[in-house]
Amino acid sequence: MKKTNYKWSVLSIALIAIFLFGMIFPFFWILITSFKPDGEIFGDGAYRIIAQNPTIHAYIEVLFNKGILNSVKNSFIVATTTTVYIIAIATFTAYAISRFDFKGKNLLLGTILGVSMFPQMIVVGPIYNLFLHLHLTNSYAVVLPYSTITLPIAVWILVTHFNQIPLALEESAKIDGATSLQILYKIVFPLAAPGVFTTAIIVFIAAWNEFLLTITLNSDQSYHTVPVAVSFLRTQFQILWSEVSAATIIVTIPTLIIVLLFQKKIVSGLTSGGVKE
């Protein structure tokens, strides 16, 4: 019995390792490529794991000449703002949908879902016209239409999580004299932390990665976010592969830090023991 258990765990660890390797390999390869001089990216040097003449030229170029740091700053502002306001709105919406009975609840959920049913490039046109008339192009107001890509999923995730919090906890809080708002922020919100932080990660990354809206609404280079800035790393005739890889590495790091911080809150057992069953 012991022996098979041991075998089993070795096998599963090996499987997990292969799986994770597959997930990381492309990123790893880009990391390697970012240190290669242009001549080694295509042709014979392409399969070398360590470049013959490693160089950090691409990093220097991207960081100091192409202003990638400014776009990292922009992305950071845009993604953080979106995360905060979307979580706030989605919490209220989801709590209302989850806890209160009102007419047209399913219709509301369906409409929220409907927002994410249209291809984005069709939605972009009208939004551009709107922004042009409101003089909002080339500003951080681009976070407003971001809600079309992030709000639906945020609301849906939070509804499923709020539904799983035992009602008894809230009822006892009510008996102790808590108002609805207090219940939401002191009981439901902390207990739904795994859902809330999952939502936060998803919203943050979705906003960080948004491309089409930013490139359409903010044509001014000083407002470019990371994906847009990377897409401009090309000349008329070629894509600057080494710079693209270097930029990819640089812009992925901030998101990973955010994920690392947020994922700690995705823990189980918050509600266990809260209610005697």
């Binding site: 990381i24 990123f27 990354i205 960080w208 897409s231 812009v251």
Partner: peptide, 23 residues
């Protein structure tokens, strides 16, 4: 593990697609 396995998703799609075209 959680963080590293989220790497692919943290890369902007437009950039990831470019990356794959190289791979």
């Amino acid at each position: 593990i959680r963080t590293t396995s989220l790497i692919p998703w943290a890369i902007p799609t437009a950039v990831a697609a470019l990356m794959w075209s190289y791979l």
